[in-house]
Amino acid sequence: MNLVEAIQIEKTYLSGEAQVSAIKHADFSIETASFVSFVGPSGSGKSTLLNMIGCLDHPSSGSLTVAGKDVNSLDRYSAAKFRGEHIGFIFQDFNLIPVLTIAENIEYPLIMVQNWPQQKRQQRVNELMDAVGISDQASKYPDQLSGGQKQRVAIARALVTHAKLILADEPTANLDHDTAYRIIDLMKKMRNDYGTTFIFSTHDPKIMDAAEIIYTLEDGQIKQTKGGTKHG
């Protein structure tokens, strides 16, 4: 079953008076529990594509379906609600909330987005901290952790709401190579354990090899350059 299905999507921007095409007639589909990478140089449209799949932005034309929902028509409120229910995000700079402990950062979406009861929240947070190997850091604050540990927290936070799809924009860009590999391995393990689809963007050739399916973007054009079947 396809979790993401894009048919002839385009994204154009106005830059001054000129119209710039960031994504040109993209057709692709991503199955559930895939481990996918969008690769390409800076400015190739990776982030734009992730933003559209993540319902942070709308295609200018074409059809984009995520988790069975045509996301083109979502307004601001519905898009936020949809993201909260189905999508998790991992950011290049981790984007953890500095005043909250690690456990509280992971718990945050369950309070602010999904409003879970306290006991259920606690169980889920503990489960995710164990899964990503940061249980011993629960009461620390983000500034007391290394980059790799912060990204583990971010992965746990993205997974905590049982998101079907995790979008990671350059998740390893601020990490050294060893840590970057460990983070990619962890993401893959989470995909295996929870059946969650991961889509990440990168321009690091060594990291992109870890992906099972690769879509390459160049000047707004997208083509599949690796894989094509469901892995796991």
Partner: peptide
């Protein structure tokens, strides 16, 4: 601002 962007992306309602 970035923090607001983060929590908004996570699906926090306006």
């Amino acid at each position: 601002i970035r923090e607001i962007g983060t929590i908004a992306a996570m699906g926090t309602l306006p």
